[in-house]
Simulated assay, not measured.
Amino acid sequence: MKIDLTDTTSSKINKALVRGRRAIGTPAVGMVLTLVIVTDEENAYDALKAAGNASREHPSRILLVIKRVSRTPRDRTSSRLDAEVRVGADAGTGETVVLRLYGEVADQAQSVVLPLLLPDAPVVVWWPVNAPLNPAKDPLGSLAQRRITDTYTSENPVEELSARARAYTPGDTDLSWTRITPWRSMLAAALDQVTCRVQAAEVEGEEFNPSCELLAMWLADRLGVPVKRSPSGGPGLTAVRLDTDCGPITLDRADGRLATLSIEGQPERAVALKRRDTAELLAEELRRLDPDDIYASALRFGVEKLNAPSAPSAPSASPVPAASAASPGEPAAVPVPREEAV
């Protein structure tokens, strides 16, 4: 069911949501969080589709905020809020409200969104593109417990990572980090199978790919060894090599779908390591809304340290346990499992 509202208010939108739920026979609210998506008209369709697919796992009230560009003097002085309310089959497993803000009201988006948030439920804000440099200080970001960005969509992803590190606030995360969860899990599981000390590492992938940089930063931060960053033709991440005193450990994926895990003295293994779409990444991020300390630590390690002669040492004993690469509260072999870019 769709309800179109022109030149409306947040109060009228809330009433339309109640009216829509009653019309389809589901007056109860069974959603677990509010997902606020801040984007432009060009990317709105893809973002809404991904959020709708993710809501199958996390029933949500989705608020899509589109700030319309003022093209004429009349547009700049005319403030207006248009909304499209979707419930039932048109909104997946939750509710969707598309908000188009015109004129001065576009600068007060938080005032429009605040009355529409689900009471006593977490709030997540996602910027598919054009994220603010400091999401926690953004008026909409300040309403959320979790703030999701994507450095892969920025003009200079590597510089963007440095900006994210400087502005990091607990609750921040990035889909470039989410993309490397299967890689981190597989590498931690490989280290669980050997009793060796890692001496150096190499990450191979597309140049200027933030996920490749984050994986290299994570390895250097957690293992305390030099990590070399090598460019390749892609797609995304293509290989990780760990040099140990027992021989090399290699995770190689050339086609973006199937990888080969090679450990000295063991037969090669084929492992599924496909590139995931945005809906899968978003669903993963919504599974846990507490601060990601491992992401924060890797981010703050710094891109500039990757190709330095030596990396800061971290406490480690021989053998290096995989648990040192895992996040607190997760199984040792699978450290906090987190599109296409990887």
Rank of each mutant, 00 (worst) to 15 (best):
E155R: 15
E155K: 14
N156Q: 15
N156W: 13
N156C: 10
N156V: 13
P157C: 09
P157A: 14
P157R: 04
V158F: 14
V158N: 05
V158S: 11
E159F: 06
E159R: 13
E159G: 14
E159V: 05
E160I: 01
L161W: 07
L161M: 07
S162N: 15
S162Q: 14
S162L: 13
S162F: 08
A163H: 12
A163Y: 13
A163D: 10
A163Q: 13
A163K: 10
R164F: 07
R164C: 11
R164L: 14
R166W: 03
R166C: 02
R166H: 06
R166K: 06
R166S: 10
A167M: 10
A167R: 11
A167W: 10
Y168M: 03
T169E: 13
T169I: 11
P170M: 05
P170F: 07
G171Y: 05
G171C: 11
G171I: 08
D172S: 10
D172T: 04
T173P: 00
T173N: 01
T173Q: 01
D174R: 01
D174Q: 07
D174Y: 04
L175S: 09
L175E: 01
L175C: 03
S176Y: 01
S176F: 04
S176Q: 09
W177R: 00
T178Q: 01
T178S: 07
T178V: 07
R179A: 10
R179W: 02
R179G: 00
I180M: 05
I180S: 00
T181Y: 15
P182F: 02
W183S: 02
W183V: 09
R184C: 03
R184Q: 10
S185I: 06
S185Q: 12
S185L: 02
M186E: 15
M186H: 13
M186L: 15
L187Q: 05
A188Y: 04
A188C: 08
A188Q: 01
A188P: 00
A189H: 09
A189I: 04
A190T: 00
D192G: 14
D192H: 11
D192R: 11
Q193V: 05
Q193G: 07
V194Q: 10
V194W: 07
V194F: 05
V194H: 05
T195W: 11
T195A: 15
